[in-house]
Computed example of a mutant assay.
Amino acid sequence: MSNPPQTDTRHPADVVTGMIDRVLELAATWPSWDGVPVPAGDRLYTPHKAIRRVTDRLIDHLAEIEARVAGVPTIPDAWHASATTTAADLAAFTAADLDEARSRLTRLAQVFDVRLRSLTAAQLDRRDEPAWSPRQIAFHLAESLYYAESVGDLAVRNA
């Protein structure tokens, strides 16, 4: 596992829900996407791919937190990650897609908020080497904003 992410005094629930709020702010501009994938490093991003990657990471790390809190082994993820751009990723991003993304991500935000706020400080900071603590996982999830920022604010880009 890579180096643990830096944490600060913010509650981990606020870190995750803040990231999701920002993803949805950016996504609100994506129905104007021109259909051309956006290069970011050695990858290409589209609105659908950004939503898929954020959602996959949220699900993966929620499963990890739940398993660790329950004291059971985690299931390794098998996501294709951002190296793969699917045909679905290349589809137009419509107002209906934005509505679906809002519904999905808003519900995941609530689940993270409820779960992380239910943990004591000791549970948030419990780390079973080499795994990260739930607090560290939450701060790591904030990095998922990268996918949405790769597509960016299309209202600004298209102005």
Rank of each mutant, 00 (worst) to 15 (best):
S103D: 15
D125W: 06
A101S: 09
T94A: 13
S144I: 09
A96T: 15
E66Q: 14
S32P: 08
V69F: 02
R115A: 02
P37S: 10
T85S: 08
H140M: 10
R57D: 15
A28M: 00
F112I: 02
P76H: 07
L105H: 14
F93N: 03
L119F: 01
A78L: 02
R57K: 12
S133M: 01
A13N: 06
L26H: 13
D89V: 00
P73T: 11
P5F: 05
T55N: 08
D8F: 09
H80A: 09
F139M: 09
R102F: 04
T29F: 05
V72G: 13
V38I: 15
R107G: 09
L58N: 04
L141A: 06
V23P: 00
A63L: 06
A96W: 14
V38E: 12
P37F: 15
D113P: 01
Q6W: 03
S144L: 05
L141F: 09
H11K: 10
S133D: 09
P134I: 00
L119A: 02
T106Y: 02
A159E: 14
E149N: 12
F139E: 15
V72R: 14
E149L: 15
T106C: 03
R127N: 06
S133K: 01
L108W: 10
T84A: 10
M19S: 13
R10E: 07
I65N: 01
R104V: 00
D125T: 07
T85V: 11
L116R: 00
E129T: 08
D21H: 06
T84D: 12
A70R: 02
A159C: 06
Q110Y: 08
W132T: 12
P31D: 14
R135L: 03
V114Y: 00
G18W: 11
P134W: 03
P12R: 04
A109M: 03
R22H: 15
A155M: 06
I75L: 08
I137R: 01
L145F: 12
H61N: 11
Y147Q: 05
R135A: 13
A28S: 08
W33H: 10
Q123K: 02
A95K: 09
T9N: 15
Y45S: 03
H11F: 11
I51T: 13
T85W: 04
V36M: 11
A88W: 00
G35S: 12
A67P: 04
A13E: 02
V54G: 14
S133W: 00
T17L: 00
A109G: 12
T7G: 09
E66R: 11
I137D: 13
E100I: 07
S32D: 14
P31F: 11
L124W: 02
N3K: 03
L145H: 10
L26A: 12
R10H: 10
D14G: 08
P47I: 12
L119R: 00
T74I: 08
R107S: 12
D56I: 10
R57Q: 11
T9Y: 08
D128W: 01
A27Q: 11
P12M: 09
Q110D: 12
R102L: 03
H140S: 12
